[in-house]
Amino acid sequence: MTKIKSLADLRKIKDDVQEKIRLRENADQPEKLVQIKVGMATSGIASGAKEVMNFLIEELEKRNVDAVVTQTGDMGYCFAEPTIEVILPGQEPVVFGNVNVKRADEIIEKYIKNGELVDGIIPRNYETIDNK
């Protein structure tokens, strides 16, 4: 292990290792970040939800968007899998259906970055107990 010889060295190590725990720090304050839930039931996985989820995680990081991406169970929109739910800080959740990698890219660029709505929004027909 190389010695840390100055405060600058320490900061450099911090920047290098922070990535390892960023996920935990973000999880501590999800309400301040973009939260995305990916429907990962059997039908979701069969239509490629896993690929979409990995794409979201990688691309959001590359594009410097602090986000918490989690998987969830069947959201009930089997006709429009893969389905994702996006919550921008302080806003109501929006559900997008038929999300493939290309549409995920569009959702990041338009909705997440600029708040512009894109096609394929499914009206939300549920409430979660999470926020009660």
Binding site: R11, I13, V17, Q18, I21
Partner: peptide, 14 residues
């Protein structure tokens, strides 16, 4: 490293 990532030893540096 995880402690340093949480600003560990930065107080000592300061």
């Amino acid at each position: 490293d995880e402690y340093i990532a949480r600003d560990g030893y930065a107080a000592l540096g300061k």
